[in-house]
Design a protein around this nucleic acid. Sequence first.
DNA 1: CAAAACTGTAACATTTTTTATTACTAATTA
DNA 2: TAATTAGTAATAAAAAATGTTACAGTTTTG
Lengths: 150, 150
Amino acid sequence: MFEKKTYICNIFYYSMISGKFAITIHILTLLTKFPNDYLSSEFIAGSINLNPVLVRKEIANLKAHQIVESKEGKNGGTKLAVNAVNLSLKEIFEMTFESINLGYAKNQPNPECPVGKKINQNLAGLYADMNKQLSVQLEGISLEDFSNQF
Amino acid sequence: MFEKKTYICNIFYYSMISGKFAITIHILTLLTKFPNDYLSSEFIAGSINLNPVLVRKEIANLKAHQIVESKEGKNGGTKLAVNAVNLSLKEIFEMTFESINLGYAKNQPNPECPVGKKINQNLAGLYADMNKQLSVQLEGISLEDFSNQF
DNA sequence: CAAAACTGTAACATTTTTTATTACTAATTA
DNA sequence: TAATTAGTAATAAAAAATGTTACAGTTTTG
């Protein structure tokens, strides 16, 4: 246990989940449905209802992970470079998020308080455990499985 | 399978996780460490390094769930209203987030596209499965367990 | 070869969400 | 009665997420 006393402090930050996973899986589902076509960013954007530039940005990420290949120029577009059977949601998850977490203390918590001093470390440990479990679960679902729901 | 054709559409949105869980568990950990004291929002804010008004807002949420009780006026503050042994991280999670999710298509996806039409529904199913598993995991960790790490 | 249809990106604008602040009322204690 | 504290609303500021415009570079097709 420790003493109760008054503390005062200041600033710093992290960030959180966005819509990348949803966008990416939407793109990949479309590509899975048309495995032989190069789909244009505009076509994909039309299904997601999103600006084509944002679609291209997510595609750039997929390319970097060698999940898709794309062709420039007229009749260009993007297609899967892997078999949907062999790509799990875990991998998609990891490509778009680093991990699940429920947030950290963002303003540097008080280092003179035993709780403030260790809170982020302990949260990190908790989140690591959560991610471990989640990974196992997502590993069991392939892109193919997900796509077959449509 | 379905046809490849061009789509165009428009707007709508959701939201996502923030730092509520981290703040709330920080508050609860402090309250667990001082089970017999009424801690002021300013004291708590000093440990988290957060504006006291925001602390009071999270406390309002905890009060609504009858996890803490508070006393107004001089020497007032907040203390636990339950035993930390009997409060699981699952309950804290549910009080601060509704659930984990990795985002939805926010702009109304194209209802004429088979993928656009069902994407949010299928994502919701996936997220529900993820939450189910996560809940079991978090249910096994009590506030007491978490607090004992400090 | 020229026009059209794409990708790839950068730069910037806009919107939305999150976080912080100020201010004030009401309650309680000393 | 003065001091301290919760409760809360209103507003401001900051940060993050999205969206837009613009344009260079590729590839195909006529």
